[in-house]
Design a binder for these strands. Structure first.
Lengths: 336, 336
DNA sequence: CTGAAAGCGCTTACAG
DNA sequence: CTGAAAGCGCTTACAG
C-alpha cells in the first residue's frame, strides 16, 4: 500500500488539510515550522499524492489526448514527439491514440478520453468531413486544438502548414531555374492538403505566365507506389523536364521509375518533393524538398492547448506555419 | 456538467448500487425489467461512467505507461504502434513517455506514472546499467514488461530480439554466397544489443572456419555518419568483399561512401544491414537486411503486460523473437 | 432482487 | 495558523 495523506497527517500530528496545503505549495496559511516539519516527512516517507484522487476533486487530470492517424508514420511520430515534449515540460501526460483514419475507431477513442477525463485533446483527425463528436466537443467548449487537418467552416484553434505556399515555393524554384514543362504528382484529391498543394503549383505557374496543362498532373496516393505509377504515365509526355511530387514518398517512387529507365536525376529530369523525410538526405541524389516542421507543429499545438487549459489564452488562434525550401541535389538548371 | 450515476439513479427511481451493477454488466442480482429500463436510460441520457472515480475505488485505471527513448525513431514508433493497438483492443490506454535515454527524465516519468496510478509499465529503458526505480518496481511486484533492452541479472518478463541469431543469419548468408573477407560495422559496444550482433558475426565466422580479424571490425554509432566513417576506414582493407552493418542506418552510410568512390553494389562490394527500415526497399540497390519485428514486439509486450494485469498469466516469461533475413539486391555472389 | 452506508485519497469552503 | 466536515463519482461488502 502506498502511503496516503492520512498516514502523513498522523505521523506529523496535523490535519490532512494542512498536509494538503504544503504538498500543494500553498504555504500562505502554514507556519514556517510546521511547513518544514511536513516537508521533511514527505521526503522521508516518500509520500506521493495520488493524482487520481486529486483529479476527482479538482476535475483536472493533467492529461491530454493525442489523436493521430498512425504514430508509425514519420510525420505523425514527429508531431507526437513534439507534443509530448511540450506536455512533459508542463507536467502533463499524453494518451496516444491511433485512428488509422477510421471514423469508428476515432469515435471510440473520443469516448475513452472523455471517460478518462482528459483535460483537452490534440486532434489530427480523419480527412473526410467533420465528425459530429468534434462538433459536439466544440459546442461544449471542450479544449481542443486541431493539427494539420483543417476542418472546413468551423472555428477551432489549430496549427497548420501553409500547403499552398509550400507548393508555390517548390514550383517557383523549378521555374526560376528555367523549367517550364513541370509535372505535378498530387496526393489523393479527396484530401484538403493535397488540393492545397495542387493549388500552390497552379498559382506559381500562373504568376509566371506558364499555361496550366492538366495532362501534366497525375493523382497519386502519397505513397511510393503511387509515385511510381504517376511517373510512368508522366514519362510518356516527353516535354517534361521537372516534377513536383506532393510528398517525398511519391518522389522516391518517381526516382525508382526514372532510374529504371536509366535517366539521370537531375540533369535529365529534376525532382522536388514535399515533407523532408529522414530518408531524403540519404537517398541519391539527395532530394530537394519542402520541409514540413512536424515536430514544431506538435510542440506548438500542445502549447496552445495547455495555454488554454491554464487560462493563459482564451481566444481562438490559428497558426499557419510556412514550410521552407531545402535545396539538395535533385534539381538542376534547365539546359536550353 | 456531465451526468452522473446519481442523476441516473434519480431518473430511474433506483439506488446507485443498482445502476452501478447494470452499467458494469453485473446483471446477476437485477431483474430483467429494471435492467432493461436502466439500459435504455443509460443510452438516452448518454451516461458515461467517470473512469477516474471508478479507478479511485477499484485501484485499476486501465492505463499503462510506455517508456521508450524516442517515438520519432522508426523502430520505437513501430513498437509504440503495436503496443497501442493491443492495448486499445483490450480497452486500455497508453501514456507515451520519451526518455531520450536520459536517466533523469526516465525517473521523472516513472514518478508521474506512479502518481497517475497506471496499472503497469512497458519499458524500453536506458541502455546503461539498471535503474534503481526499475529494481524497486520489480521488488514491489509492480507489473512490468521489458522491451528490447534486456537488463542483466534480473528476472522480469520481457520481449527481445535474438540479436546473436540475427547477426549470425546475416553473416552466414554472406559466407554461403562465397564471401570470406567480411567486415563488420558494429553499433556502440556499450550497448548490449550491439555486442550481441558482433557476437553473432563472430560465431558465423567460426562455424565456417573463417579466421576472425579484428581489423575488419569497426565500431559505429548506429547512425548514418558512423556508417560513413567506418566504411571509409574499411575501404583501406582491400580484401573486403562484403560488409555486415549492424543496422540499416549505418548501411546507408556505407552506401554513400561506396557510391562516392564509384564502386558498384553489390558486384564490387556486398552490403547487408539489420532492422529493415521503411527506407531499405526504396534506396538503390534495395538493401538486403535482417528484419526486426518491431510492431510485433510492441504488440506482444502489451499482451504480456495486460495478461499479467488480468491474471491470465503470472509466471515470468521471456519471449525471444528470431529476426528474419530479407533478401533484396545489395548482396551478390562472390566472384572467384 | 434491491439499497443504505462506508470508503477510495484527495481538496476546499468554512469556522475558529 | 489550523482543522472538521463535506464532497468529487464511483464500487463493494453487508443486510434485508
Amino acid at each position: 500500500m502506498a502511503i496516503t495523506i492520512k498516514d502523513l497527517a498522523k505521523a506529523a500530528g496535523v490535519s490532512v488539510t494542512t498536509i494538503s496545503r504544503v504538498v500543494n505549495g500553498n504555504y500562505s496559511g502554514v507556519s514556517e515550522e510546521t511547513k518544514n516539519r511536513i516537508l521533511v516527512l514527505v521526503n522521508n516517507m516518500g509520500y506521493k499524492p495520488n493524482a487520481i484522487a486529486r483529479g476527482l476533486v479538482t476535475r483536472r487530470t493533467k492529461t491530454i489526448g493525442l489523436i493521430i492517424p498512425d504514430v508509425s508514420n514519420e510525420f505523425f511520430s514527429s508531431i507526437a514527439r513534439g507534443a509530448e515534449d511540450e506536455a512533459n515540460g508542463r507536467e502533463y501526460n499524453v494518451f496516444l491514440c491511433n485512428t488509422d483514419e477510421d471514423v469508428f475507431k476515432e469515435k471510440q477513442y473520443l469516448a475513452a478520453l472523455n471517460e478518462k477525463c482528459v483535460d483537452g485533446i490534440l486532434y489530427a483527425g480523419t480527412v473526410k468531413g467533420k465528425s459530429n463528436e468534434i462538433l459536439n466537443l466544440k459546442e461544449k467548449q471542450f479544449p481542443l486544438v486541431i493539427i494539420d487537418r483543417q476542418i472546413e467552416d468551423i472555428e477551432i484553434s489549430g496549427v497548420f502548414i501553409d500547403n499552398i505556399e509550400g507548393a508555390y515555393k517548390a514550383t517557383n524554384y523549378l521555374i526560376k531555374l528555367g523549367h517550364s514543362n513541370i509535372a505535378c504528382i498530387t496526393g489523393p484529391l479527396s484530401d484538403r492538403n493535397a488540393c492545397d498543394r495542387l493549388e500552390g503549383y497552379k498559382k506559381a505557374l500562373k504568376d509566371n505566365s506558364i499555361a496550366y496543362d492538366s495532362l501534366k498532373v497525375m493523382e497519386g496516393n502519397f505513397k511510393v507506389d503511387g509515385g511510381m505509377n504517376a511517373m510512368k504515365e508522366l514519362l510518356r509526355i516527353e516535354k517534361i523536364s521537372a516534377v513536383f511530387a506532393s510528398n517525398d514518398l511519391m518522389a522516391y517512387g518517381a526516382y525508382k521509375i526514372i532510374k529504371s529507365r536509366k535517366m539521370h536525376i537531375p540533369t535529365e529530369i529534376s525532382i522536388i518533393g514535399f515533407d523532408d523525410n529522414a530518408l531524403s538526405d540519404i537517398i541519391e541524389p539527395e532530394l530537394t524538398t519542402i520541409r514540413q516542421p512536424a515536430y514544431e507543429m506538435g510542440k506548438l499545438s500542445a502549447r496552445m492547448l495547455i495555454d488554454i487549459l491554464e487560462k493563459k489564452s482564451s481566444h481562438k488562434v490559428i497558426t499557419r506555419l510556412i514550410p521552407e525550401l531545402v535545396i539538395r541535389n535533385s534539381v538542376s538548371e534547365k539546359k536550353l
